[in-house]
Each structure stands twice: as structure tokens, then as C-alpha cells.
Design a protein around this nucleic acid. Structure first.
Lengths: 231, 231
DNA sequence: CTGACTTTGTGAACGTGTGCACATGTGCCT
DNA sequence: AGGCACATGTGCACACGTTCACAAAGTCAG
């Protein structure tokens, strides 16, 4: 069939849910499930069935009325849409507590994001090996990014060093950054940033916790899949 | 002045930004800044000034026209609203890679979320000390939660064990859960869950990265502060 | 005390996201 | 071959969030 990439825009909220559907679908595929209905998928993803259908409709009409969606085919389509048909090597800046945990956490590579390198500015940390990767000096960043075609960088430095880390990543040619430091990063136009701030998450929980005066029932939206409680 | 807790509801999106404002305001206070305008705060938080004003207006009319907001007072009000006037001890389930990093990461305690305990199901992990806390068996969960008045639990287990961890937390009396496992947790009505899924974040970046065909300019919304790029 | 200037607080318009409800299409059973 | 049961795909209405634009309220200089 002819390649017809129409480049239709997918809503932000949907993009954030697709990875969740994908994970569930892969699990179902491993369980030898061949077809799944929007309701079944919705149940597993903890969302509304109509939302699932609308989300999937952005990819095209890949369902069969009266039957549901073919799991393997959906997996392929979502992967394709998310750009997961090939690996995206990432480079981690900061070999502290968090950087080490991230590098050591096998989940990255498995899910298509192999750790191409870990760098730190502290000479004391150099050459230690974490998760099979040797820690190199931050000055090698450009070389790593170039040679390994890295386009995603992870900032796992202390807050004070985060902006510098981001600047270096951008200078090295990285165009997407996942930021773990509790800082608002300034980056040039054209660079995507997503942040993960543990303290912020806890503080949000604290808000709802504090409100739980005695009534005790809330459905709080999560950051990407609007879901928090179920009966 | 009389205490007038009206319990007005604050929009979800605003709740997610308040912690960011708070962090910035605390920084400014340390820099001896006494007053800040909505525009100044907006700049530092990477958001629109009108948004800042509307967000803060949910707390009450705490600004002074022609001047701005008194930093120290705002810090107090936001803390109060978020329920950060006292500490919220947390218990971490799972002493693996991530659990260790979280426990060892000092940022929790500093920001009002001291680690009350770390538990694991694996006897081999018991009694090792991480970040000043001894790893205990998961059967001690109830005792820890009760004695330390814990209401927030952190799930840092492998995916397969996450639901069980959540069940145990709920049974022990925890009412808020921060979930790091790539699983959709089912919890009873009245329990709040927020999730942090690294792979999902990377996959979202991948989507925008993949679209960057040659045009190269996108402003992608972050999970809480709708912001991704700046010039 | 007055007037110019600054910045808040908010009404109103707009855009995005959600969920219902149902027509439409598909497969199965008789 | 026909009809029935089922599940998708989507139009529509509503809720939520964002941004503009401006009146109201305060400051400060002279």
C-alpha cells in the first residue's frame, strides 16, 4: 500500500494516553489476546470507553465494528504514530543518586530508549560503570550525541546545575529533554522539554489529602491519564 | 483575623502549578526579594502572567495593586492551601534501584516529606540502611503507617508487584499513592493516585521528536505547567 | 491633595478536552 | 439470504482551562 502520512495533528491529551494503551496492548498480546474492544481497553487503562475510541480514531479507522480492535495491528499503529519503530538512544546528564538509578533501571533499554551515555562534571564520578555504561566527562557530551545520534537528553543533576546541563545538551544538538531537576528550564524554540518533579507530585497529593476532611472521596486527575480513583 | 476556611475548590490545573510557584517564591525569599509582580513570577515559572493572577486569585486577594505580591505572605498562603504547614511522612514500598534512589535522595525530607520507612518483600534486602532508614519487611507496613501516621505511600516495585503493593498500602490505611510502576493501579474510592511513568514521558517526547520533520518548532505542554519551549 | 502610573482581579471570548448518544457498519446464526 | 446483536466512529453539548483586555485600586512624586 502507498505511504500516506497525512501528518494529522493529534491532541496533546491523546498523545499522553497512547503510551498507556500501548503498554496494555503489548501485555494483552503476550497473553495471546487477539482482539480487544474499546470498553475492554478502557477498563484496563482506567478511562472512558468513548475516550478510547476517540483517541484511536485519530490514528485512523483501525477497528472493526461488532468486533473491536486487532491487538497486534493496533500495537503496530500506535508504535508507528509515536515514532517507536526505531530506538531512541538517550544520554543522561548527572551520575548522582537519580542518574545512577535511571541508568541502572533496565526498563529504558527494553522500551526502546537505550542509554547511550552517562556524563557528569565531577571527576570523582568518572569511569565508574553503571548499568553497563561507563560514566564519562560532560565535555564528551558533544561527541556522544554526534556519534550515537542522540536526540533525547535526561537532566538528572542537582537544581543549580540543571540549566547548565540543558544548555550543554542543546548545544550538543539534543532537541528533547526530560528534566528531573526541580527547576524551570529555559530552552530555545524548537526544543521540547518535559519535566518530572517528585516534590511537586507529592505536594499535589498533599493538597487533596489535606482536603479529605471527613468526606473522603475524590477523583483526582493524573498527569496524563485523567484518573485517580476507582471503586 | 478570624479563620475563614471557605473550602473553595481550586481547579486541578491550578493545584498542579501552585507547587511550582511555591518553589520559585521560596527561592526569591532566599534572595531577599520582598515583592514580586505577577509578570515577574510568570517569567520565572514559564507561564502567562494572567494565568498567575488567576491562579493566585483562587487563594484570595493577596496582592497589592500597583505593587505586586508580598513574597513571604504568598509563600505562607500557598503552603497553607497545599497543606504544607506540617510534614507528611511517606513510606516507600520497594527497595530496588528506584526505591533506594528515592530514599537516598535528600530532597524529600527537605521539602516536608520525610521517609518514615522503606519496606520490601525480599528478605535479602532487609536491614540494609538507605538514606538513614533501615529497610523493613513489607509485613511491618501496617505498624509503620500506624505509628508514624503515614498517609502517603510510594510504589517503587517492579510492575508485577505494584498492585499488591498498592493493596497493602490501602489496607494499612494510606490514602494517597505515588506510583512509579508502569501499571494502572486499581484503588478503592477515596484513595488518590498519581503516577510517574518514565517510559511514558520518553514516548511522548518521541512523538514530538518524530514529527520534527524539518520545521522544528513546537510548544509542547508539560504535565502540569503547560510549557515546553522558549526563545 | 492631585494626577500619573503601575499592577491586580476578573468578565468575557476562545480553545481544548470529555462524554453521551446514536447512526453506521460488520459478523454470526438460523 | 436475511435479520439480529454488537461495537465502532462521530456529531453535539457541555465542562474545563487559557488568554485578553480593562476597570478598580493602590502607590508615589511634586
Amino acid at each position: 500500500m502507498p505511504v500516506e502520512r497525512v501528518r494529522r495533528r493529534i491532541p496533546e491529551a491523546t498523545v499522553a494516553r497512547l503510551p498507556v494503551y500501548l503498554r496494555i496492548l503489548v501485555e494483552q498480546a503476550n497473553l495471546e489476546v487477539e482482539n480487544i474492544s474499546s470498553e475492554g481497553l478502557a477498563e484496563l487503562a482506567g478511562v472512558n470507553a468513548a475516550k478510547v475510541r476517540k483517541d484511536l480514531s485519530y490514528l485512523g479507522s483501525y477497528g472493526t465494528r461488532g468486533v473491536g480492535y486487532e491487538v497486534a495491528f493496533l500495537v503496530y499503529q500506535i508504535r508507528r504514530e509515536l515514532g517507536l519503530t526505531h530506538d531512541w538512544p538517550v544520554v543522561i546528564v548527572g551520575a548522582g543518586n537519580l542518574g545512577q538509578a535511571l541508568a541502572g533501571y533496565g526498563g529504558f533499554g527494553e522500551r526502546g530508549f537505550p542509554v547511550a551515555g552517562v556524563v557528569d562534571i565531577d571527576p570523582a564520578k568518572l569511569d565508574s560503570v553503571i548499568g553497563g555504561v561507563r560514566v564519562r566527562h560532560i565535555d564528551d557530551l558533544g561527541q556522544i550525541v554526534q556519534s550515537r545520534q542522540v536526540s533525547i537528553g535526561v537532566v538528572a543533576t542537582p537544581p543549580a546545575a540543571a540549566q547548565d546541563a540543558a544548555d550543554r545538551l542543546v548545544r550538543a544538538g539534543v532537541t528533547s529533554i526530560l528534566n528531573f531537576a526541580p527547576v524551570v528550564l529555559g530552552v530555545p524554540h524548537g526544543v521540547s522539554v518535559r519535566k518530572v518533579d517528585l516534590a511537586v507530585e507529592l505536594q499535589i497529593l498533599s493538597y487533596y489529602e489535606q482536603r479529605r476532611v471527613g468526606v473522603g472521596f475524590h477523583a483526582i486527575g493524573s498527569n496524563d491519564s485523567g484518573r485517580g480513583a476507582s471503586a
